[in-house]
C-alpha cells in the first residue's frame, strides 16, 4: 500500500486508446495493477467507489453487533463478539488504506460517509433485536461476505487484492462463531429455537440481497468483469451462497422463509423464490429500518472522538519539542 507521495496520476493521457489497450493486455495476462501504474480514469473511479464503500460497510457493520457486546449471554461469547467487532474495524482500516493508494485521502472518505454521500452495504441498516440476530449476522452476513470477498483476493488491483487476502483469513472465524451461536440456540429450549427461527426469517432475504441486483438489472457488471475487478456475476455468487447455506440451516432443523425454495436434482442447485427488489431499493435509498440511526451513531462517534485525535497530535508535538530541546541541551 505504498506511498501516496508517488501517486502522480497522468490525467493528460486519461483516454489514450493505446495506453488503454496496453492496460487491458496486462489485466488479461493476470498482471497486478499497482498504484503508480497507468490506469484508465474509469478503473480508478470504480475502484475508489467500490473499495471505499466496502470500507464504510466494515465500519458501519460494527454497529448492529456492537449493540450486543455488553449483553452477550456469557463471558466467552462476549470476548468472541468483541474480537469480531474489533476485526471489522481492522478490515475498515485495510480497505481505507487500499483506497488511499488511488489518490483519495482518508479525510475525504470519512467525510463522504458522515455526510451520507457514500453508500455502504444495506444489510447493516437492519436491527438486531435479539441475541439470535448476532448468530445470524456471523453465519449469514459474514458467510455472504466471504462468498463475495474470496474472488476479490484475485482482483486486478494489487492493494485491494492484498487487503482482501488479510480480510478473508479473518472472516472464517466470524462465520463459525455465528454458526455456533445459532446452533446452540437451535438445540436449546423451544423458546431458544423459536428465537433462532425468527432471526433466520428476518435475515434470510436481506442476506440474499447482499449480492446486489440480479444480473439482468446490474449496470456495472460487464466492464468490471473485463477489468477483473469482478470475477463472478451477482447471481452466480448468490447461488453459491444459497447452495452452501441451505443444507447448513436444515442440519440445524431450521426452515427458510421461502415457500418456493426447492432442490433441483437435475442442476444440483437450490432454487429460490423471487427477491423483493423494491425492499432493497428502499433500503439503499435510505429508508431502511436503521439508516438514520447508523449515520447518526457514526457522526456522534466521530465528533466525540475529535478530542482524542487532537490530544494525540498535541502529545506528538510535545514529544517532538522535548526531543529537540534535549538535543540542543546536549550540544
Amino acid at each position: 500500500m505504498y506511498a501516496q507521495a508517488l501517486n502522480v496520476a497522468e490525467k493528460a493521457h486519461a483516454d489514450d486508446p493505446e495506453l488503454r489497450a496496453r492496460f487491458q493486455r496486462r489485466v488479461d495476462a493476470e498482471e497486478k495493477i499497482e498504484p503508480n501504474d497507468w490506469m484508465p480514469e474509469g478503473y480508478r473511479r470504480t475502484l475508489v467507489r467500490q473499495i471505499s464503500q466496502h470500507a464504510h460497510s466494515e465500519i458501519v457493520g460494527m454497529l448492529p453487533e456492537g449493540n450486543w457486546i455488553t449483553r452477550a449471554p456469557s463471558l466467552k461469547r462476549k470476548a468472541a463478539l468483541l474480537a469480531k467487532v474489533q476485526d471489522e474495524g481492522g478490515h475498515g482500516l485495510y480497505l481505507y488504506s487500499a483506497a488511499e493508494t488511488l489518490g483519495v485521502s482518508r479525510e475525504e472518505l470519512v467525510e463522504q460517509l458522515l455526510t451520507g454521500k457514500a453508500k455502504y452495504s444495506s444489510i447493516f441498516n437492519y436491527p438486531t433485536p435479539s441475541w439470535a440476530d448476532i448468530g445470524m449476522i456471523g453465519w449469514l452476513v459474514d458467510g455472504a461476505a466471504i462468498m463475495n470477498q474470496i474472488p476479490l483476493c484475485r482482483c486486478s488491483y494489487g492493494p485491494y487484492a492484498r487487503a482482501m487476502i488479510r480480510v478473508c483469513k479473518e472472516e472464517s472465524f466470524h462465520q463459525r462463531q455465528g454458526f455456533e451461536i445459532v446452533m446452540t440456540l437451535a438445540k436449546g429450549s423451544p423458546a431458544q429455537k423459536t428465537m433462532a427461527q425468527q432471526a433466520l426469517n428476518r435475515w434470510w432475504w436481506p442476506a440474499l440481497m447482499m449480492f446486489g441486483p440480479s444480473d439482468r438489472d446490474s449496470q456495472h457488471s460487464d466492464q468490471n468483469m473485463a477489468w477483473k475487478i469482478k470475477r463472478f456475476s451477482n447471481d452466480d455468487l448468490r447461488q453459491k451462497f444459497i447452495d452452501a447455506t441451505v443444507p447448513q440451516g436444515h442440519f440445524l432443523g431450521l426452515t427458510f422463509p421461502d415457500p418456493e425454495l426447492r432442490f433441483n436434482e437435475a442442476t444440483g442447485h437450490w432454487e429460490h423464490g423471487p427477491i423483493d427488489w423494491s425492499e432493497f431499493n428502499r433500503v439503499v435509498r435510505g429508508e431502511g429500518p436503521c439508516n438514520r440511526e447508523r449515520l447518526k451513531a457514526r457522526q456522534k462517534a466521530h465528533a466525540e472522538g475529535a478530542w482524542v485525535r487532537e490530544a494525540a497530535l498535541a502529545h506528538a508535538e510535545k514529544r517532538a519539542a522535548r526531543k529537540a530541546a534535549a538535543k540542543i541541551a546536549a550540544e
Binding site: Q4, L93, Y94, S97, E100, E107, E108, L313
Partner: peptide, 28 residues
C-alpha cells in the same frame, strides 16, 4: 489533504516467528 498533513501515513513491516525478514503488511 488535512489528514495526511497532520497524521502522516506509515508503512508497517512485521517479522514473523518463522525467522524470515520483516515483510510489508499494510499501512496506517
Amino acid at each position: 489533504s488535512g489528514t495526511e498533513k497532520t497524521m502522516p501515513l506509515w508503512e508497517v513491516f512485521i517479522r514473523s516467528r518463522t525467522g524470515l525478514s520483516h515483510r510489508h503488511c499494510g499501512s496506517l
